[in-house]
Amino acid sequence: MKKWIIILLIMALSGCGVKEDELPELIEVKFRTNPEEIKINEEVQLVATVVQGKEQVDDASKVQFELWKEGTSEDQHLKLSTKHQKDGIYIVKYTFEEPGKYYIISHTTARGLHVMPKNEFIVK
Rank of each mutant, 00 (worst) to 15 (best):
W4V: 12
W4P: 00
I10S: 07
A12Q: 11
A12G: 15
L13G: 02
G15K: 03
G17H: 04
V18G: 09
V18E: 11
E20L: 11
D21G: 11
E25S: 15
E25I: 13
E25W: 15
L26V: 12
I27V: 13
E28D: 12
K30V: 05
K30C: 03
F31W: 11
F31T: 06
F31C: 08
T33Q: 14
N34V: 09
N34K: 12
E36L: 15
E37W: 04
I38W: 04
I38V: 15
I40V: 12
N41Q: 15
N41K: 14
V44S: 06
Q45F: 03
L46R: 00
L46V: 08
L46N: 00
V47Y: 08
A48N: 05
V51L: 02
V51S: 01
Q52T: 02
Q56A: 14
V57W: 01
S61C: 08
V63L: 03
Q64W: 10
Q64G: 07
F65V: 02
L67R: 03
W68Y: 13
W68R: 04
K69R: 09
G71T: 07
G71S: 10
T72D: 02
S73G: 06
S73C: 04
E74F: 03
Q76Y: 15
H77S: 11
K79P: 04
L80S: 04
K83S: 15
H84E: 06
K86N: 15
D87A: 15
I89H: 00
I89T: 04
Y90M: 10
Y90G: 00
I91F: 03
I91Y: 01
V92L: 09
Y94K: 02
F96M: 07
F96V: 03
E97Q: 13
E98D: 13
P99A: 11
K101Q: 07
Y102L: 02
Y103K: 07
I104P: 01
I104E: 00
I105A: 08
S106K: 02
T109E: 08
T109D: 05
T109F: 04
R111K: 14
R111N: 10
L113V: 07
L113F: 05
K118G: 08
N119L: 06
E120P: 14
E120T: 15
F121I: 09
V123N: 01
V123I: 10
V123R: 01
K124M: 15
